[in-house]
């Protein structure tokens, strides 16, 4: 499941956004550009992601955020990964800016897979060597290779 999520991931190695809201918009747009979601679904998904953030930031600390949503508009669980070298103000739990955004878009009926993906990301986030790599990586294929290395076997 995680291996397929990585293969299918949309990776934005260098976000142009400088705010949390803009980064969410940019990543949802990237998912639409890559045909993972329909263009018409960008707006409801953005709104659901903003609503989730308003409920409590998904910035889990150490420069990592995990905005996530389960929605009927999504057919296949998708990871949209964005990297910001300069960092984004994100109201994260530790107050630090976020360099790495793991957006997870999940279908409504995928509760178990969704939880498994969130658990995987939180494992990655706790790994200092992983963070040192992802926060300086600029190459999409290098990021994908590392994620595969870090997928549960």
């Amino acid at each position: 499941m995680i291996a397929a999520l990585i293969d299918n991931a949309v990776i934005v190695p260098s976000l142009s956004s400088t705010t949390k809201d803009d980064a969410i918009v940019e990543l949802v747009q990237a998912a639409a550009d890559a045909n993972r979601i329909k263009a018409a679904h960008r707006k409801p998904l953005r709104e659901a992601l903003f609503a989730r953030e308003a409920n409590g930031s998904t910035g889990i600390g150490n420069g990592i955020a995990v905005p996530h949503v389960k929605a009927k508009q999504i057919t296949t669980m998708t990871l949209v990964l964005g990297c910001s070298a300069d960092g984004l103000p994100y109201q994260a739990v530790d107050g630090r800016d976020v360099q790495t955004v793991f957006m997870i878009l999940a279908p409504e009926n995928a509760a178990e897979d969704h939880l498994q993906a969130l658990r995987w990301v939180s494992t990655l986030a706790r790994n200092a060597d992983f963070r040192r790599f992802i926060q300086t990586a600029t190459d999409e294929s290098a990021i994908r290779e590392l994620l595969h290395e870090m997928s549960p076997s």
């Binding site: 040192r132 790599f133 300086t136 190459d139 290779e145 590392l146």
Partner: peptide
């Protein structure tokens, strides 16, 4: 050995 050189090495 930050991200890019580590990847090249591997």
């Amino acid at each position: 050995l930050h991200a890019r050189p580590a990847h090249l090495f591997v």
